[in-house]
C-alpha cells in the first residue's frame, strides 16, 4: 500500500461539555484528544504502509491542533495537514465532508482513505460515507480488521448481530472501530524526526472553497436548540438487606419484562 490518508478529529476528553449560544460545542479551554477510533485508523494505516508507504494525517479544527498533529508525526505519520479557518466553524457532516474532499483532491492521489467509525463528541459517524460519496469512492463502515494483498483488501465489519467479511479494492474509504488497532506511542526516534517535519496548514481559499460552502453556512442541517443535560439524579431508595433487595429487584424485573 503506497499512499494512505487518515482523517482524524480532536474531541474533548471530558464526558460533559458545554455549548455556546449558537449551539456549537465550546472547544476553548477544554482538554482535547484524538478521537480513539481515528487513532485506531492511523495504526491500521501505519501497519499497511510499512516501510515504503506514506501516511498523511488530515484534520479540520483550530490552529491549536498543530502541536497535537506533531505528536501523530512522532507516532509515525509522514505528513500532517491542518485545515483551519474560522469560516469553517459550526460545520455539519456534509460541510465537513465537502472540505475534506476538497483537501483530498488537493493533496493528491491516495490508495486508501481511513477514518474512525464515529467521533465520541458528535457521534454521527456520517463523515466517512459523505466523504466517499463526494469523491465517488466505495465506503465500508465499522471495520474491525483490515488486510491488504496485491489484489485488494479484506475487511471484517461489525454489524449489530454478526460480522461480515468483505472484499474491496483501492481506492476506497474505510472507517474503523475504536478498539481494532491500538495506536502505537511516539518513539524517541520518531519524536526527533517529527521536529523537522512542518505541519501543513490550509484554509478555505487554499482549497478553492467559497465561504457559503463551509461551516454553518455550508451546512444542510441547523441546530435549533441544544440542552446540556447532566444525567439526572434519581436518588432512589437504598436497601442494605440483600434478601429484601433481591425481592424488590425481582419485582422490578417482572415490571420491565414484557
Amino acid at each position: 500500500m503506497k499512499r494512505i490518508l487518515v482523517c482524524v478529529k480532536a474531541v474533548p476528553v471530558s464526558a460533559f461539555v458545554e455549548v455556546d449560544s449558537q449551539h456549537r460545542l465550546k472547544r476553548d479551554g477544554i482538554n482535547l484528544q484524538w478521537n480513539a477510533a481515528d487513532a485506531s485508523a492511523l495504526e491500521a494505516a501505519l501497519r499497511l504502509a510499512g516501510e515504503d508507504g506514506s501516511v498523511t494525517v488530515l484534520t479540520m479544527g483550530t490552529s491549536k491542533l498543530e502541536s497535537p498533529l506533531r505528536e501523530l508525526l512522532a507516532r509515525g505519520a509522514s505528513r500532517a495537514v491542518l485545515i483551519t479557518d474560522r469560516r469553517m466553524a459550526g460545520a455539519d457532516t456534509q460541510a465537513t465532508a465537502r472540505v475534506l474532499a476538497a483537501a483530498v483532491k488537493k493533496l493528491g492521489d491516495f490508495d486508501l482513505i481511513l477514518c474512525g467509525c464515529k467521533a465520541i463528541d458528535g457521534e454521527t459517524g456520517q463523515v466517512p460515507g459523505q466523504l466517499a460519496a463526494a469523491l465517488g469512492l466505495p465506503c465500508v463502515s465499522n471495520g474491525e480488521t483490515l488486510e491488504a494483498d496485491p489484489d485488494g483488501l479484506t475487511i471484517t465489519r461489525r454489524l449489530e448481530t454478526g460480522t461480515q467479511e468483505l472484499r474491496g479494492r483501492t481506492p476506497t474509504v474505510i472507517s474503523l472501530c475504536a478498539y481494532s488497532y491500538p495506536l502505537r506511542l511516539p518513539g524517541i526516534l520518531g519524536m526527533r524526526r517529527a521536529r523537522n517535519i512542518p505541519v501543513e496548514v490550509l484554509n478555505a481559499d487554499d482549497l478553492g472553497l467559497l465561504p457559503e460552502q463551509c461551516g454553518l453556512k455550508g451546512s444542510a442541517t441547523k441546530v435549533l436548540a441544544m440542552e446540556s443535560r447532566f444525567p439526572g439524579m434519581r436518588r432512589g431508595p437504598k436497601e442494605t438487606d440483600l434478601t429484601l433487595g433481591a425481592k424488590a429487584l425481582g419485582q422490578i424485573l417482572r415490571e420491565v419484562r414484557p
Partner: peptide
C-alpha cells in the same frame, strides 16, 4: 527512565 514511548511499548 524515559517515559512511556513506543520503545517501552
Amino acid at each position: 527512565l524515559m517515559g512511556y514511548t513506543e520503545e517501552v511499548r
